[in-house]
Amino acid sequence: MTTTRSRLVPRTVVAAGVLPATIAVAGAVLIRGWRDELPASVATHWGLNGTPDDFAGPVAVALFVGGFGVVAAAVGAVLAVLAHRDGLLGRSVAAVTAGTTAFVTVLTTSLVADQRGLADAGEAGIGPVPIVGSLAAAVIVAAVAGWMVPPGSERPASGLPADAPRLQVESDERVVWTRSVATGSYGVVVLVAGVGVTVVSSLLARQWWLLGLAAALAVLAVLMYSVTVTVDRHGLTVRGRFGWPRLRTPIEQVDHAAVAEVHPIRHFGGYGYRIAAFGPLRGASGFILRGGQGLVVDRADGRRSVVVVDDAETAAGLLNGLVQQRL
């Protein structure tokens, strides 16, 4: 555990700071290196009809790419180090910082690269390839950054607190607790609004690829509309209505379970699969389909899983009983 601790901060700095800064500086150097092949001012923004409507000098573009990346990396590194003890939070900050920087850098660099050899940047076109390519690059870089930051592991396993709910489980007894939970009405409003806004923007802007994004959002919303929570000899399992997504916390990894009041917007910033950025559950991750009592599972590795479900008290008691039975 001590080795993980000492390596955690440097790894976080590399993932959230050094990695995005390097990508941004590399993009800036490339763009500056092409300045002799580029028009005096390059297109930097396109209107809805696909013709460029804003221009800048190549050196200014290079400075923007490098400057954006360096500032984002500095802010990201500080935030990620501050959050690196809070479960998945440090990992998420690193992934978002590195991914966003990669998206901006790759998009700008590839749009500028396409303008090499043009006499007039007014002829510069824009196609789906740079956008899709930079999204793909962003996802890959975000995954690498996230992989580099291990989930925070500094909350020591504390064992079962005296006041924790607990159900006695006999050695030969067969037990299971299961309950399904559906997205609350506020959550449905938020999800429908999200899909609706994407569809309307797509139609207004005639950006048809946005319809694909709306469809993907709708599919995710349907898959996560309701989940089934099961506590049994295997541990805690949360399963979507159609079997996916499926998250399992094995019983060997459960330190103890408790019940907590969950505020979706205030602490988790919305509904669905979420990581808490604020509040007492900071760093905990799991399914927040509505507000209310949630089952909170502290894992032996310091991570925290949370799921809002009715009768979480019984679920927590049974998990604690099953953990005690194994001892």
């Binding site: 030969d172 007894e173 067969r174 037990v175 299971v176 607790w177 299961t178």
Partner: peptide, 14 residues
């Protein structure tokens, strides 16, 4: 829904 089955009971599991 909590289900507890006692294999030692005279009542069948089902």
């Amino acid at each position: 829904m909590l289900i507890r089955l006692d294999p030692g009971s005279t009542e069948p599991l089902f």
